[in-house]
């Protein structure tokens, strides 16, 4: 019972730290991605809050959670940024970097994305490699990229 009293009601904790958490996340991730990360940070805190044994170092605790969420976000989203960049600047991510990202796509989509962005093949070349038309290759590539984006966003 003493412990329950020592830990502040979550509302008070949230109000006290939300501004600083958002500031940290914006600095690490930019304004847009910071919003999802903000929500994720306090949801993680809320999940663990009932199991806290004392109220010491709550500020350090929540900033650590925010830091971890930022790392997770960067880890998850950096490859797509490169993917988007690849479209415009012809920058080539290595095949290995695309392997994880395309894991779980249908085989044809996966091959199309890897050949397009991993090896910078044209849609004609991809089409002949996959035994399909250039339009179908373009379609498979863009479907694959959309799926990856959706998965990262969810």
């Amino acid at each position: 019972m003493m412990q329950a009293v020592a830990i502040p009601p979550f509302e008070r904790f949230y109000e006290e730290h939300r501004t600083e958490v958002l500031r940290l996340l914006r600095k690490r991730l930019g304004a847009e991605r910071a919003e999802d990360a903000f929500q994720e940070t306090f949801l993680r805190a809320l999940r663990a809050y009932g199991r806290l044994h004392h109220a010491e170092h709550l500020r350090a605790w929540v900033l650590t959670i925010a830091h971890n969420v930022a790392l997770d976000t960067l880890r998850r989203t950096r490859p797509t940024d490169e993917l988007v960049e690849a479209q415009s600047t012809d920058h080539r991510p290595a095949y290995a970097e695309l392997a994880d990202l395309t894991d779980g796509l249908a085989p044809k989509e996966r091959a199309a994305v890897v050949l397009r962005y991993g090896y910078d093949l044209s849609y004609e070349q991809i089409a002949s490699a996959l035994g399909s038309s250039p339009d179908a290759a373009r379609q498979a590539t863009s479907t694959g990229v959309r799926r990856i984006r959706r998965r990262i966003a969810s």
Partner: peptide, 18 residues
């Protein structure tokens, strides 16, 4: 709310949220 937060926490637990 500030006067009520601790009371609500005692009733139901520390995860009190508006």
């Amino acid at each position: 709310p500030d006067a009520q937060l601790d009371r609500l926490a005692r009733i139901a637990g520390p995860r009190v949220l508006r």
